[in-house]
């Protein structure tokens, strides 16, 4: 067979790669960069208000939510036209939020007022405000949507909140400055990253009360322990791999989800902050705030395949559903 034919055969044998849009908030650039997940080329950049940070998309892919921190609002964009549709009331300085698996409501951490604000994205009304610890930050929702979690950075707790009654059911102490929380797809475990503590707490949810069963620590040769600051967390649907962005350590840690042991560190851009999978989990995208790029990680191979320049100080990332 001629080389050209071999190449053609290989191309035909590969599963068809769906192109998804990847949206990256540029905290300093006041914009959102759009990438194509098939080519990893930048296909658009649009203004997104002042200091855009947290970003998520509705399950139907019709609405893109951006926390515009310095505007004290959540801006909602059309992911096709990039036009702003409307805004949502968020309270002061919104940073991170999570959408209910059904697409409604939106749970927003409101740092200045020690509240979690629950907003109906259809009626644009505040449904509830839940008082939590000092400086609420990370937000996660259980896969069944029955419970959501907020982490408070100065109180150093994960607060478990009933999604129906909005009552706090449990408070679990973790290490200093908890930034991000993520449930496993089976809802049995919650991973909470502690930026200043330098650890990820694994909270077991199968017992009567949530309890920290393990604290994952990190050590990278040649990197000062002070620079290992875990922030973003993503877990594969089968729970086999956990990826943790380590901030100014410029690495994404790969953790075995069965044993919770660190198996590798992937070198990415500078000050890696948040992570997002493509819907098929073939790729993981990480944002690097100090090198103005995103790194594309091949999830199976556990290697960084390329980096793409985006806007100034990329912060959050979300990939459109199929």
């Amino acid at each position: 067979m001629k080389p050209a034919l071999i190449l053609a055969a290989l191309l035909l044998a590969a599963p068809p790669a769906l192109a998804n849009k990847v949206f990256v908030t540029n905290e300093r650039g006041n914009s959102v960069t759009v990438l194509d997940s098939a080519t990893w080329e930048v296909i658009a950049t649009f203004p997104a208000g002042n200091r855009p940070r947290g970003i998520t998309i509705s399950p139907d892919g019709k609405e893109l939510y951006v926390a515009a921190s310095d505007d004290d609002t959540v801006r909602v964009f059309d992911p096709e036209t990039y036009r702003e549709l409307h805004t949502l009331p968020s309270g002061a300085d919104p940073e991170l939020f999570v959408l209910h698996p059904s697409g409604n409501p939106l749970y927003i951490a409101n740092e200045n007022d020690n509240l979690v604000t629950v907003v109906d994205v259809k009626t644009r009304q505040v449904l509830a405000e839940v008082p939590v610890g000092v400086e609420p930050e990370g937000m996660a929702i259980a896969p069944d949507g029955q419970m959501f979690v907020n982490t408070s950075e100065t109180t150093n707790m994960a607060h478990f909140i009933d999604a129906t009654s909005y009552q706090i059911t449990d408070n679990v102490l973790v290490d200093q400055r908890p930034r991000y929380a993520q449930f496993t797809a089976d809802g049995n475990k919650l991973y909470v990253s502690s930026e200043i503590g330098g650890t990820v707490s694994v909270i077991d949810l199968t017992a009567e009360k949530p309890v920290v069963t393990r604290k994952i620590g990190f050590a990278i040769p040649g990197v000062l322990p002070e620079w290992i600051q875990p922030v973003g967390v993503r877990i594969t649907r089968d729970g086999s791999r956990v990826f943790v962005a380590l901030g100014p350590a410029n690495r994404v840690a790969v953790i075995d989800g069965a044993t919770d042991a660190v198996i590798d560190y992937l070198l990415v851009g500078q000050r890696v902050w948040q992570l997002a999978f493509t819907p098929d989990e073939a790729f993981l995208i990480s944002t690097s705030g100090n090198s103005n790029d995103v790194s594309i990680i091949d999830v199976q191979a556990q290697t960084v395949i390329r980096s793409v320049q985006v806007g100034e100080q990329p912060w959050g990332v979300v990939v459109a559903p199929d």
Partner: peptide, 18 residues
């Protein structure tokens, strides 16, 4: 309505924790 609601949540919060 919201204020009363918050009061309820607050009460619940302190009932849940200690």
């Amino acid at each position: 309505g919201l204020r009363a609601f918050i009061a309820v949540v607050l009460a619940a919060l302190f009932a849940a924790g200690p």
